[in-house]
């Protein structure tokens, strides 16, 4: 049902069998520097895509183009089937955007902001007020509702900004780094709101620099760097590219290491002679048990055991080819192990 948009006063029914958010070959240059170099995106109705990328990758530019705020040089984009370039008004009716920087009126109060926007969506006076009340309540802004936004904290502003983009309950929402600058509690709360939106059938494109956020929230993740999508898939798929879970064991003596190596006898074994460590891929708890059982057959003593799971950080650093902030990683951080695995593969 949500795929079909019926416009009042027109007999046209626009079936949108394609994705709720669709972009292909988006190009954008500022002066001479190409900022987007052929971005392809598809977000199915009712799902969430996280657009992950470092500073300056082109996340904000992409979101601003898709939400009609910025003209673009090439490619095409549709929102709920409406062409971003040719039908901006229709696009604006079906989407809401929470930009990277707050777009609320500092002079007005939180409530006045929401009512004003509701009225500009033509909700009618009473309906706009009721909707503002609900959102203020939902975003825990009731106490501050009648204070000028100028006096709000950064987190309150972000919440109000998100509330503002939800007023007309749009089926498509863009969130540009919605949790940047929020404390852990507010971030959790924001995540809850975002999950609630997806649960109610909203299509969301969210940008983030927080790899964990993409992992936690999104159905799919697209990694953007230098204006290109360099990877696209579920968080699990992306992690697969880097490697699976690995079990890592440390030993006190070279002899122990050698004995363990023989005992395990598997192919995918990483041995670090100097650090007296070895690691092997494990597909789940059963395989962990198998490895430990095999070790139990020989008289070796492991001094440390660690199960490391590749994180999106690994994906990120792997794909963008950036240097890791934690250096060469001689000590066993979970990430370092995963990267070794990827290098070997």
């Amino acid at each position: 049902m949500e795929n079909t948009v019926i416009r009042e006063g027109m007999a046209t029914v626009k079936p949108t069998r394609q994705a709720a958010i669709h972009a292909s070959g988006l190009r954008k240059s500022f002066k001479d520097s190409a900022v987007l170099d052929g971005v392809d995106l598809d977000v199915d109705t009712g799902t969430m895509l996280a657009l992950l990328g470092p500073n300056g990758a082109g996340k904000t530019t992409t979101v601003r183009i898709l939400s009609t705020l910025l003209p673009f040089d090439g490619g095409e984009a549709t929102i709920s089937g409406y062409d971003v370039a040719c039908e901006p008004d229709e696009v604006r009716r079906v989407m809401g955007i929470t930009g990277q920087y707050a777009t609320v009126d500092e002079v007005l109060t939180g409530r006045e902001n929401l009512v004003m926007i509701g009225r500009l969506y033509h909700l009618g006076k009473a309906a706009a007020r009721a909707r503002a009340d609900t959102l203020l309540h939902q975003f825990d802004l009731v106490d501050a509702a009648d204070r000028a936004v100028r006096t709000y904290s950064g987190g309150m502003r972000r919440r109000l900004d998100l509330a503002a983009s939800l007023i007309a309950d749009p089926p498509v929402i863009f969130l540009d780094e919605p949790t940047t600058g929020l404390d852990p509690r507010s971030r959790q709360a924001m995540w809850d709101v975002i999950r609630g939106l997806v649960a109610s059938g909203t299509t969301i494109l969210l940008t983030t620099q927080y790899l964990e956020e993409a992992d936690q929230l999104a159905d799919r993740v697209a990694v953007i760097d230098h204006g290109r999508i360099i990877a696209d898939g579920t968080a699990a798929e992306l992690k697969q590219r880097v490697g699976t879970e690995r079990l890592e064991l440390s030993f006190e003596h070279t002899a122990d290491l050698a004995a363990a190596r023989t005992a395990l006898g598997v192919e995918d074994l990483h041995v670090d002679e100097e650090a007296l460590r070895l690691s092997t891929a494990v597909g789940g708890p059963d395989e962990v048990r198998d490895v430990l059982n095999a070790l139990g057959q020989v008289p070796v003593r492991a001094t440390d055991l660690q199960l490391s799971r590749p994180t999106l950080d690994d994906v990120f650093f792997d794909l963008t080819g950036q240097a890791r902030p934690d250096g060469d990683g001689t000590r066993t951080t979970a990430r370092a192990v995963a990267t070794e695995g990827a290098d070997a593969a």
Binding site: E2, A130, Q138
Partner: peptide, 25 residues
């Protein structure tokens, strides 16, 4: 714990026709 920050609606004030993408006029 998050419930202290985010409250869920008791009654729905979402505009009826918003999902259809149309406005009253």
């Amino acid at each position: 714990m998050n419930a202290t920050l985010i409250h869920h609606d008791t009654h729905d004030t979402r505009p009826e026709n918003a999902r259809a993408g149309s406005r009253p006029g």
